[in-house]
Simulated assay, not measured.
Amino acid sequence: MKNLLVAGILMSGIAFGQVKKDTLEKEYKLEVAPYKAEKKEKPLPLSKKGQMFVFFGWNRGAFSNSDIHFSGNGYDFQLNNVSARDKPTKFGIVYFDPSWFTVTQYNFRLGYFIKDDLALVLGIDHMKYVMKQNQTVDFSGHISDPKYAAMVQNGQVDLSDSQFLTFEHTDGLNYENLGLEKYKNLVHKKNIDLVWSYGAGIGVMFPKSNIKLFGNERSDRFHVAGMGADLRSSLNMVFWKNWMLRAEVKAGYINMWDIKTTLNNKPDKARQDFVFGQVLAGIGYTFNTKKYN
């Protein structure tokens, strides 16, 4: 009996020791098991913080009529309800040759997503503004030079012969702007996404105005002339994950209070404000600044 008791104690000790050993080994294996990082899927385009895009395209513009006020040595007058148009370049190789890209009415965008679906966008809108030459407009004010004062008849002046004034922002009506844009994915397929955006921007007007007033030498230089603001909306088709086709509409307000009208830093200047509309289209590329598996 005593021998049986001793044998039982020995057997239970061995069994308990084996269970304890197995338990410790399992706990140890759990502790030293290698850590596997959670797999990060590449996000939808134009949707996540840290994404960027670049874009280049071309535009057509339209402008409301505006009152243009001129002041300088010997004159201070206003032309009322002046109409203008844009000046698109005839389609050809000029649209694709980098050495000639400033000749066209172009747009550039650089966007960075500061939050999910919200991008800060730096833009350059190179529009062209040309006063319609064949028009007669209302005149108010005075001109001391009898030659040009005589061109005013019954409170109006005929601009059609170009002797009184030619007035353009064709190199161009440059709107350098910073905007915020909200993005929403509408369609998500294997190789195609359709993304809608809307937003607003504000910026400075940096035109190169081509102006010839009263037969003076033409003013033709870049100058910060005022400010602009806009509302915009776009449709973006992203294909092959990174390439982007973009179509955008924009409406805004421009106020330029310091337009240079003569050379040699004379005090002569003009001011005007107007509403503009713009449609544009082009191609871009979107990419991530963060790595995804």
Score class of each variant (00 low, 15 high):
residue 233 S to K: 08
residue 115 K to H: 06
residue 140 S to L: 05
residue 46 L to Y: 01
residue 124 I to W: 13
residue 221 R to F: 09
residue 228 G to A: 14
residue 238 V to I: 11
residue 248 E to Q: 14
residue 97 D to Y: 07
residue 133 Q to C: 11
residue 96 F to A: 12
residue 87 K to I: 04
residue 225 A to T: 15
residue 245 L to F: 15
residue 104 T to A: 10
residue 40 K to W: 10
residue 215 G to R: 10
residue 183 Y to I: 05
residue 214 F to C: 04
residue 128 K to G: 03
residue 272 Q to H: 12
residue 202 I to C: 07
residue 190 K to N: 13
residue 95 Y to A: 02
residue 45 P to M: 00
residue 196 W to C: 08
residue 133 Q to N: 15
residue 211 I to C: 08
residue 136 T to N: 06
residue 100 W to R: 10
residue 201 G to A: 13
residue 223 H to M: 09
residue 178 L to A: 02
residue 227 M to L: 15
residue 54 V to D: 02
residue 22 D to H: 06
residue 68 I to N: 01
residue 65 N to S: 13
residue 116 D to C: 03
residue 38 E to W: 05
residue 90 K to L: 12
residue 227 M to S: 15
residue 124 I to K: 06
residue 141 G to H: 01
residue 140 S to Y: 01
residue 83 S to H: 11
residue 229 A to T: 01
residue 247 A to G: 15
residue 167 F to E: 05
residue 188 H to K: 14
residue 244 M to E: 00
residue 228 G to M: 00
residue 235 L to F: 15
residue 68 I to T: 04
residue 215 G to N: 09
residue 104 T to W: 04
residue 93 I to Q: 09
residue 180 L to T: 03
residue 62 A to P: 02
residue 147 K to W: 04
residue 239 F to E: 03
residue 258 D to T: 05
residue 18 Q to E: 08
residue 240 W to C: 05
residue 13 G to D: 04
residue 38 E to G: 09
residue 233 S to M: 13
residue 222 F to R: 09
residue 25 E to T: 12
residue 269 K to T: 00
residue 122 L to W: 10
residue 7 A to G: 05
residue 147 K to H: 02
residue 78 Q to K: 11
residue 292 Y to G: 11
residue 91 F to D: 02
residue 158 D to P: 09
residue 56 F to N: 03
residue 233 S to V: 04
residue 217 E to Q: 14
residue 180 L to C: 02
residue 293 N to K: 15
